[in-house]
Design a protein around this nucleic acid. Sequence first.
DNA 1: TATGGATGAATGATCGTACATTCAGTAAGG
DNA 2: CCTTACTGAATGTACGATCATTCATCCATA
Lengths: 227, 227
Amino acid sequence: MDDTGDIAKPDTTPRKQSRAARRQQLIEATIDTIAAQGYARTTLTDVARQAGISHGLVNFHFETKERLLNETLQYLAEEYRQNWTAALAAAGPSPAEQLDAMLRADFDPAICTKARLSAWCAFWGEAQCRPMYQALCGSNDDDYTRTIEEICAQLVAGDGGGGDPVRIARLLRITTEGVWLDMMTMTDPYDAAEAMRTTFTCAAAFFPRHFDENGLAGRRRSGVVRA
Amino acid sequence: MDDTGDIAKPDTTPRKQSRAARRQQLIEATIDTIAAQGYARTTLTDVARQAGISHGLVNFHFETKERLLNETLQYLAEEYRQNWTAALAAAGPSPAEQLDAMLRADFDPAICTKARLSAWCAFWGEAQCRPMYQALCGSNDDDYTRTIEEICAQLVAGDGGGGDPVRIARLLRITTEGVWLDMMTMTDPYDAAEAMRTTFTCAAAFFPRHFDENGLAGRRRSGVVRA
DNA sequence: TATGGATGAATGATCGTACATTCAGTAAGG
DNA sequence: CCTTACTGAATGTACGATCATTCATCCATA
């Protein structure tokens, strides 16, 4: 959950811990370890130490290292999905409100932490040659893509203007990924607020009647992050 | 050089090969191996086999695996840099022509191959926890960033309009990275021509007087890639 | 044009180690 | 007591590094 990566803090009642809880704890430890050491250098011993338990236990809960890593990525993907679908459901009915909600969701502090971004990035790097990773990594979430494409199509139609909604949707998705990467890889990165403003600047370029650099235009919302 | 990764084809005159040539051959083999197996699974034996030589030789030319990987990334970074600076030098003097050249350069078939994109991506994934990689990976090329920011500043000033040139430059850089990633990670990706059109769609959104989806507007150039 | 030695590229067997996996054994619930 | 979580030592293996040895090529001398 947290970003700091302190070892086995959350009441890890050494003996006895429900199976599900231990598994989740190990997955979180895996995320933190990958973030700290990188994918290639992550060992089961590291993960176990991060979780504050013996390394034999990792194989007890997940039979192999490969499975642990697969499930970690699935966990991240599912978490991401939950986050944007929930945001979308909570948003108003107009396409502009929905787009605002989806773009904003990617910067929710619950999923937009340094450790999680690092882990995503690490899996991404390995995805090219592993079908399982590839299927779960960003650009292959059909549901996300189709949803944002539909919203863009509605906005384009509503404006009566031109522009290919598929390409605009792609640019918006890419922009989000891009600022994520920047926050991850830049030696001296800008903060999440500026990242979000950058994303909305892109939205504003295509839908100027609806968006400005702070999001949905003409309506001050309780922004998630704002500097 | 090529994308197919056939083993040790280019007249690898088994005995005797100048030091520099062997090193470059090994670096190319490293790129192909990383692309094929991923960073984490790349072994010196794989690289040697890919190059068609014994694995002892890899340590003979590069003392350690770490050095081989470092030099491979440096090679890619230098190649990338050469490519865009050359393109910029060959471009006309107007900021629009220069931006067109820089964006187009990223899709030059010499550097925009599947193997190279895969390798870039793999290094990127590991960059978060390795300062040396981090310094060489995309978003930290100060020269590139400053150049594209200056060009955007000129275009913004010339249009007499608003818009933060730094943020626009960032969006253009991010878009290029993004379509690269798409070509890499999508299970069913679009081609390089569509990738370039996507990039120029972004440029057109901010500089509509100068660009359309095919690049510099009102002037059909001998495009590098066009479907 | 031979001969022989020096240089350095190239090999592959060997070694040491790090790491995933296994397993025999221990301790809590229930 | 029986099930299930858990431990840590033991095992096997994959891999990076080392090194003695082989082999081309070049050059010096006759």
